[in-house]
Structure formats: C-alpha cells, structure tokens
Design a protein around this nucleic acid. Structure first.
Length: 412
DNA sequence: TCTGGGGTCCTAGGACCC
DNA sequence: TCTGGGGTCCTAGGACCC
C-alpha cells in the first residue's frame, strides 16, 4: 500500500510577492497584469477571492469585481526560484518527488515511517519545514493514490493537511461534486449534469458500459476513479519520471488585433527564434512545425507540416512557419493571436546529405555562439539576421529608410 | 465578462502500406 | 472488378491542467 503526498502551495504567486513586499499582506492582490490589459488572472489573494476573483478570469472582469485590488504583472523568475527551493526541501523527505507544476508536487512517502513517523506526523514536519525555510504556506493531501491525494490537498486548502485513510477512498469521494475530479472540466461536468450526475457517488453507481458509451475510454477510467480505484489513468502514472518535452511552442496575443503583415511576420520570426532556442537548450530537433492563428472573433486554426528531416535551426523553423502563415492567413483579416509550435521532437536530426552538411554545420556553430552570448548578456543581445532578413528585404524594397538598425548591438 | 501561455492527451478521418 | 483488415503516420481540433 503506497503513501502518496500531494503538496500544493497556497496562492503561490501572491505569497511570493508578499515576501518581497509585506505591505501586500491582507490586501486584495491580483497577479497577471494590469486591470486594462488583455490577459487573465494568474493568481488571486484570498482577500481578492472574497470578491469573486478567480484564476483564469479575464483581468478586466477581475477589475470590475474588485476595483480596489492591487494588480501586479508578476515575477516569473522569483516563482521559479521559490519552486526550486520547495522542491529541494521535499527531496529531503523522499527520493521520489515530482513537481507536477510550478506550485504543486507529488511525492511517494511509502516506507519513510522510520525516518519521519506516521503520515500525519511526517506531513506536519514537512509543512513546518517549508514554512520555516521559504516563508510560504502549503496544503498537503495524503492518500494511497495520486488522484485521491490531489483531491485531498484541494480540500485541505488553505494551509491544511488532510489524510484519507486507506480503504475509505470511495466514502471520501462520494459526496464531492464531480467537477472535483481532476480531468473533469466544464464540458464533462455539464454532460454529467445532463445525465443527472452531480456527485462522485452518483457516478460510482453507473454501469461501466454506460460510461464507456458516453465518454469513451476516459469514461472507464472515470468509473474506476469514482470508486476510489487506481485505474491507471494518466494522472496516476509513475511519480518522478522525468520525460523530455513532447512539444515546444510560443504564442503571443497582441494588445490590439492587427492585420499588419509586417508586424505579423516579425512576430512570427521572433516566436520561431524563441522556439528554436529552446529546442537547442533541450538538445532536441523538431520534425513537425505548426502555426496557430486566432482571429478577431476568436476562431482559431492550427496548420502543421512535417518535414523530411528534423531541425533546430531558426532559419528552417521560420521558413516553414512563414510558408504556413502565407498559405493560411486570410490577408486583411485582423489577427488576435499568433503562435509557432513544434512537435515530433527527437534527439537527432536524422540523415543529412553530404552537400548540405557543411552549410548546416556553419549555421549550427553560429547559433551556438549566439546562444552563448544570450546566456551572458540577455536575450536581446543578439538578433539573428535569419529571423528578420526576409522582412528587412521586403521593407527595404518598399522603403529603404525603414530598414531597422539595431544600434549598439551589445556583445555581438 | 470577454476570454494568456505553455503544455498533455484524446479522437477522428484520410493516406498509405502490407 | 469490387473489395478485407490491421497498422502507422499525419493533420486538425478540442478538453483539460496550472
């Protein structure tokens, strides 16, 4: 029988902000951006939540609900640093720790009784250690499976510990609303409601075959979960397995929708460069390049193409992204969001012809040098010509005076 | 109310191969 | 000439998570 801890930081981004500015404590705080920006709430303090402000809510809505709230853009580097500090503490309690996201972790505490005592005592020690060394509060759920531990930590919030005794999983879950089950979002919840299913207990009573009919394979897992079984669905996978990413992407929502081809293509170049950089950081090469376009009315399309050979070069990524963009953007139609993504990632490029090899080798060396400069002087230190050359040529053609010159390009 | 950015997983149809 | 079944890959879209 396993003992799983699910550790969830309380109002993580807001709490980190409070460490750096204690005057924020006790006030309604919203992290995510300015109240008039296009964007959503990344985190809200408990005071702000009293006004109905929630994560993922548009900032403008949050501002209407709670005009006196303090809106902060946030400090991602700080959050990563504190996330890492928490991870190191957790690793002192168990060798099997997996950060499920920046502010939550799952750990296997099976067999640690002799070191830290029974689960509840261990959880209290862990909770105190995190608070003492980071100044942050967390909530801990304890159960025999990852799923139940996660639901328990959710219910323990804020700043609590909840242990679901082995054997009582079904009884614990039964009175909860179906939306509490990880993986049941708005759509599935609504469909379940339409079937007259509101609580996990109602779900547990349904026939497996009926759920499979209604929800496919996911329905079967759902049935198992409702009864507290470990059905082996995606969220109950092995803890701590470090897998390489399966996709890498960047996207950008414009402050104002735009149909300006130059702006769009320059943005495409910037996004492609960022993705290529991250591919190289991971030592990966992408075979499939994808673009994403969201128009003014929120209709969204993705268009992808798989290459003969994988790449991590800015120029090749951009060339493909640009082809897709030119083929599929309805010229003149205002764009809200633009994205560049890669999938089909692999650790090698694949076969190269002898003719191409020297050219690519030169590029590889140039990009490695540029990456090193960026590491030292920041991402703005080098702008690769490959990313913008096509655009420059076009601009120069229309109006030579507009060719951008990046004054005093530090370090390059 | 007006909807971010970065991911994972699933489904479904069509192409293609054996 | 009319027709199998299985497997894999590709593409597009969507649900969901934090």
């Amino acid at each position: 029988m396993r003992t799983i801890f699910h550790v969830d930081m309380d109002a993580f981004f807001v709490s980190v902000e409070e460490l750096f500015d204690p005057s924020l404590k006790g006030k309604p705080v919203v992290v995510g951006g300015r109240p008039d920006e296009r964007g959503v709430v990344a985190a809200a303090s408990y005071e702000a939540r009293k006004f109905g402000v929630r994560s993922a809510m548009p900032l403008r809505v949050a501002a209407r609900l709670c005009p006196q709230a303090i809106f902060l853009p946030g400090h991602p580097e700080r959050y990563h640093e504190y996330s890492e500090r928490v991870r190191r503490i957790l690793c002192e309690f168990s060798p099997v720790v997996e950060m499920a996201s920046i502010d939550e972790a799952c750990m296997d505490m099976t067999g640690t009784e002799r070191l830290f005592g029974p689960p509840l005592a261990a959880a209290h020690r862990l909770h105190e250690e995190v608070r003492r060394r980071t100044g942050l509060n967390c909530s801990i759920g304890i159960a025999v499976s990852r799923l139940v531990a996660k639901v328990a930590s959710d219910l323990a919030k804020p700043n609590g510990i909840l242990w679901v005794l082995p054997g009582s999983e079904a009884r614990f879950l039964a009175p909860l609303e179906v939306g509490r089950i990880p993986g049941v979002g708005k759509v599935t919840e609504r469909r379940l409601h339409e079937l007259g299913v509101r609580r996990v207990g109602d779900l547990a009573k349904l026939e497996d075959s009926f759920l499979e009919e209604q929800f496919g394979r996911w329905g079967l897992a759902l049935a198992g979960k409702a009864r507290g079984l470990d059905a082996g669905a995606w969220f109950d996978e092995e803890i701590g397995a470090e897998a390489p990413p399966k996709s890498l992407s960047h996207e950008h929502t414009f402050e104002r929708d735009t149909a300006d081809a130059e702006l769009l293509e320059a943005t495409l170049a910037r996004l492609a460069s960022m993705v290529a950089r991250r591919l190289r950081d991971h030592g990966l090469f992408a075979r499939t390049v994808e673009i994403k376009l969201r128009y003014h009315d929120f209709t969204t399309i993705t268009r992808a193409r798989t290459l003969d050979r994988a790449t991590a070069l800015d120029a090749e990524l951009l060339a493909e992204a640009r082809r897709l963009f030119r083929e599929h953007w309805q010229r003149g139609r205002a764009v809200r969001l633009l994205g560049v993504g890669t999938t089909n990632l692999q650790p090698h490029e694949g076969q190269l012809s002898l003719l191409e090899e020297p050219r690519r080798e030169r590029w590889r060396r140039a990009l490695a040098a540029a990456d090193r400069v960026r590491d030292r002087y920041g991402d703005d230190a080098v702008e690769l010509g490959s990313a913008l050359e096509g655009l420059w040529r076009e601009r120069a053609h229309e109006n030579p005076a507009r060719r951008p010159s990046r004054g005093g390009s530090r370090g390059s």
